[in-house]
């Protein structure tokens, strides 16, 4: 059962608030989302996993890229980044933090880096809290993560009730720890407050990738996707999904180019202006989602595009459970 965060955590938050903008899970309109807090009381650490992942902070649902009100000025102006003070993303689960590590490789990496992402990311310090329980939808371990995974986190905390232990993982973490006087606990000395959740089935990501790659043309995708309604719940709630669209709009004489979340589950994602669509049905689109997460991302970025947070599992309107799908490929026959 859920327990309120220990005093050690709330004290830490109070200290953080003195040095940085703090973003933490808060309850807004009956659901838990990441938002800026002004006091430790607001942080809803105990309210279960946030409905929406924290990716909004580095990759907002809608972000202006350029704007101009002058005709002929086709370069436009990128928005003013504003004061670049430190921002702390506090209280994320290790799975969500791990997703940020993936975004770093995709949006923040490559030949051409995404300056908008970088700008938001550079000022962000991620403090995660190790999980002491797992939900029926959690499957971080099958994706190579775990309740104590440090990937993507700058500091990983363990809630020990009246105090908390911190693993300081990055330079940023060191800097912030210094700012608030947080001591580093050597990883080996950690004694979690509660029992670590039971380990999930050992993931054999490489085997899964192999089997998926073999099954691209398999008929099974059609059967799996029968019930898929093609909405974007899974991708929009996913902390690792990063596909976007670039749109231009003009209102009141101001011409704006923005990027907005897009989803590979939407037909328009790949539909060409001619009307040709290489992924014409839910089957191809669902396949793309699974392949992208468990084959392409691994190939390209060395980690899966899924961190096992379970949001897509719990919120899919038709209970199309990605775990069942991947498990079906890992079954005896290699194919579902």
């Amino acid at each position: 059962m859920r327990r309120p965060p220990g005093r050690g955590i709330t004290d830490l938050v109070e200290r953080l608030l003195t040095v940085a903008e703090v973003y933490a899970p808060v309850e807004r309109d009956q659901s838990v989302v990441f938002d800026r807090i002004e006091s430790a009381r607001e942080a809803a650490i105990d309210r279960g996993p946030a409905a929406l992942s924290p990716k909004n902070l580095v990759f907002p649902r809608c972000e202006m890229l350029l704007s101009s009100s002058t005709r002929g000025d086709e370069s436009g102006r990128a928005p003013d980044p504003g004061p670049g003070g430190p921002r702390v993303l506090f209280g994320v689960r290790p799975c969500d933090a791990r997703a940020i590590a993936l975004l770093d490789r995709i949006l923040g990496g490559g030949e051409k880096t995404d300056s908008y992402y970088i700008r938001r990311r550079e000022s962000l310090v991620v403090i995660s809290i190790g999980c002491t329980e797992s939900l029926e939808t959690c499957f971080c371990e099958t994706t190579g993560g775990g309740p104590r995974s440090t990937e993507g986190s700058d500091i990983l905390l363990e809630d020990l009730g009246d105090r908390c232990e911190a693993s300081i993982i990055t330079e940023k973490g060191v800097w912030l720890a210094g700012q608030i006087g947080l001591e580093h606990d050597p990883a080996g000395a950690r004694t979690p407050r509660g029992p670590a959740p039971p380990a999930g089935p050992a993931a054999d990501l490489a085997e899964l990738k192999k089997r998926l790659d073999r099954s691209f043309e398999d008929q099974c995708w059609r059967d799996i996707a029968l019930k898929c309604i093609g909405c974007g719940v899974c991708t929009f709630l996913c902390p690792a999904c990063h596909c976007f669209d670039v749109i231009d709009e003009e209102t009141a004489g101001v011409r704006v180019r923005s990027r907005i979340w897009d989803s590979c589950q939407f037909p328009a994602f790949t539909e060409q202006a001619s009307g040709y669509n290489p992924r014409p049905s839910a089957a191809e689109r669902f396949r793309q989602r699974v392949m992208h997460k468990f084959s392409y991302c691994i190939e390209r970025y060395g980690m899966p595009g899924c961190v096992g947070c379970g949001r897509c599992v719990s919120r899919c309107p038709v209970n199309l459970d990605i775990r069942t799908v991947t498990a079906s490929f890992l079954g005896d026959g290699g194919e579902p």
């Binding site: 309109d29 093609g230 909405c231 974007g232 038709v318």
Partner: peptide, 28 residues
């Protein structure tokens, strides 16, 4: 407005609706 503010435009409401069957939704 408070209700609408929560919407993330994932289209689940539309796609799960038996009566929303337009070949191309006006929103697209």
């Amino acid at each position: 407005e408070a209700e609408m503010k929560r919407c993330i435009r994932c289209n689940a409401c539309r796609n799960v609706c038996p009566m929303c069957y337009c070949v191309r939704c006006f929103a697209d």
